[in-house]
Amino acid sequence: MRTFDYTSPRTVDEAVRLLADHPGADVIAGGTDLVTLLRDGIRTPTHLVDVNGLGLDEVSWQPGGAVRIGALCRNAIDDPALGRAYPVLVKALRAGASPQIRNRATFGGNLLQSVRCPYFRLPEFACNRRTPGAGCAALHGDSRHHAIFGTSENCIAVHPSDCAVALLALDAHVLVQSTRGTRRIPVAELHRLPGRTPHEEHALRRDELITAVELPAGPFGAHSTYVKARDRASFAFALASAAAVVAVRGGVVRRSRICLGGVAPKPWRSTAAEEALRGRPLDDAVIEAAADAATRDAQTRPDNAYKVDLVHGVVRQALTELREQS
């Protein structure tokens, strides 16, 4: 690990000023991803700005019912009201990592974690994310874990977050701040597809800090769930996962969000699956059609073609659970 200057600001203003002043600075919050990247020499900041002293760790319900979750709330958050209003979020959080990691990992950090591609994480492999233009060793490598949606010839890594998939399904926004002021970014626009610039992981500018995640007011979100397929029972990244939110009125689905994890370089929304549900009753045939639609346009490789079936399975499981609840 290269050495760095360490600072622990006490206010957000101070923090974003530090980021503005030090182009080589990285933010550390929970550290559960960044510390390993530092150790492996994948990130080499000159400054480390420790934001743990900024507060930003409250859940506040806004007038009108929206909720703002401080960026430094830990993933272990255990808030019964959140669980009632947004079951998919709580389920996704509990499906992520381990209790120890959830006790440290923050909402902001979880969203901004780097891809879990081993070719990215092992410096001996070529990786366009680490070194633009270096090439992508994963393209000709073992691709069992890699993406089937949203890839490019420059990167086929998957975004590892469970929480982000749930937030996407809930139409969440992140609030960010810099010395220039604040802005809101939809989670749907936070992560970037690799395209020709896989090193540009997200839409945040380097001097911006996430201060909160905002979820829109219910009741949309209350009827939701998260299903995750992985290689072992717990403490493993998703091979495929589904966050499903449905609003059923008059016996038919009026509105829904079907979002997928573990299959794309960003949390992946399947509008095709949502279309298949719209205006239809949540019965076996419709669930099957939606699960099938969720796999449409998948671009597979020999090692990861199975993910098409897994996507089908997790979507079916999620919708079946929601049907049984209603």
Binding site: F125, G141, D142, S234, F235
Partner: peptide, 19 residues
């Protein structure tokens, strides 16, 4: 790795022992 012979999964995050 089939192309280079480098190990792709030399970590507990990728080599999944039972939990």
């Amino acid at each position: 790795d089939p192309a280079t012979g480098l190990f792709v999964t030399p970590a507990f995050t990728d080599y999944h022992v039972p939990v």
